[in-house]
Design a protein around this nucleic acid. Structure first.
Lengths: 225, 225
DNA sequence: CTACAATATGAGTAAATACTCATATTGTAG
DNA sequence: CTACAATATGAGTATTTACTCATATTGTAG
């Protein structure tokens, strides 16, 4: 259809149907916009560069989108609504259903490993989403309602299920547990990117095992022995 | 000295000696810059507005700082080096020393509560520091070496001490523990600001107690009973 | 008080860039 | 093929804004 070769191949490239009713031109513009935004951030990106990368004239951009901000929203909002959010929540849901009879530590390992892969692949986009959510309430709302809340609900459902099975303490709020395990995993991701020399060398699966073990059994020496 | 009334009163306002060898004018400019940056972000801030807020002419700004970026660095770097970093690490160090004989859960509670206060007070500044660290390696380096690493070291020292006393498991890396408790606390802070309707109502101290309890004793029902 | 240096001023400049519009191209119906 | 509509083009515009510089003010030494 198009002989345009994308400069930056995103993991979701080709999922054109995520964006409803987009013409070929519009799709090219949005793909180019995302490329440029992830490379230099929104503010430092220029419409002329987006046009260049998209292979269209600058005027064409403004035939399809009224303002530069509209390009930002048209790029990121459908991505969150149709890809990042559902992708996160559904795969979580599937994993939990699929491994219903597996020990909780194994499921947590699988879930965290899976999330890790997703987030790593999406990181360039998530980074700009998070940064710009600070300045554009429209993005903030979608991020909250279509990504964060979805992930949260899936996780809470899983923990509640395991709690009702008697595998998790019921004197603690599942919210507390969710925040802690998500926070622990997130801290590990951040640490890996901040201190590659320390964390990259370690065996990833072993580290995840330790995180899950710590979450389930606690840091304290059991004095009851 | 100056009859200029700051629009936004930062918690550290007045700590002029944090910035070595600053004239009154330079101090006014940097204070104004921080105010404007925290309100609109770096990109959306203009040198003319900084000048207006500082109560000086725009030309004066460029007599003291060559570029807008230099204003950013001159504002945030000393703040991290002399205030945020030491403030975080020292108070942690002090708390740990001071309460050497207290049970670990009490110390953790105190430390997290203390961190919570600090971060809440500094949040407007931290937010812009974190965002701009994404685009300016100079900021990233200082943030890493003068804030993150300092906090890390203090925390690791504390955990190691408690581990050697036999209060914490020694089959787990202190790094794993540090990441988990820091991540759990961070996730709670984030959650509080994202979902005020849910988290603000809860009693803060009780929630912190639950977080520490979960960290120390784990989420799993103890099957040994 | 005077002479001179240091500093401050703000109107002005040059460059960047979001956005426009008259013209050109492409697609399509009869 | 023709006529017309839809879309694309890119040179051009208006505005914003980081930065400059000739002039004015302030501070100071003799």
């Amino acid at each position: 259809m198009s002989d345009h070769v994308p400069i930056f191949q995103h993991s979701w490239t080709g999922d054109e149907q995520l964006y409803e009713e987009l013409t070929d031109k519009q799709w090219k513009i949005l793909k180019a916009a995302l490329t440029v935004f992830t490379e230099k951030g929104y503010s430092a990106s220029t419409t002329s560069e987006i046009a260049r990368v998209a292979g269209v004239a600058e005027g064409t951009i403004f035939r399809h989108f009224k303002t530069k901000k509209e390009i930002l929203l048209a790029t990121l909002i459908p991505l969150m609504q149709n890809f990042i959010g559902p992708g996160a929540a559904n795969s979580l849901h599937d994993l939990v259903l699929q491994y219903d009879n597996l020990p909780i530590e194994d499921v947590l390992m699988l879930v965290i490993e899976d999330r890790q892969k997703h987030i790593t692949a999406l990181w360039p986009v998530l980074r700009i989403v998070i940064i710009e959510a600070n300045f554009h309430p429209e993005l903030r709302d979608v991020l909250l309602n279509n990504v964060v809340k979805k992930v949260q609900e899936s996780f809470l459902a899983f923990l509640k299920q395991r709690q009702s099975k008697g595998e998790l303490r019921d004197d603690l709020d599942v919210w507390t547990m969710m925040r802690t395990i998500v926070g622990a995993a997130a801290a590990y991701f951040v640490s890996r990117s901040l201190f590659p020399e320390r964390e990259q060398d370690h065996d990833n699966r072993q580290e995840l095992k330790a995180i899950v073990d710590l979450f389930l059994r606690g840091a304290q020496v059991d004095v009851r022995y």
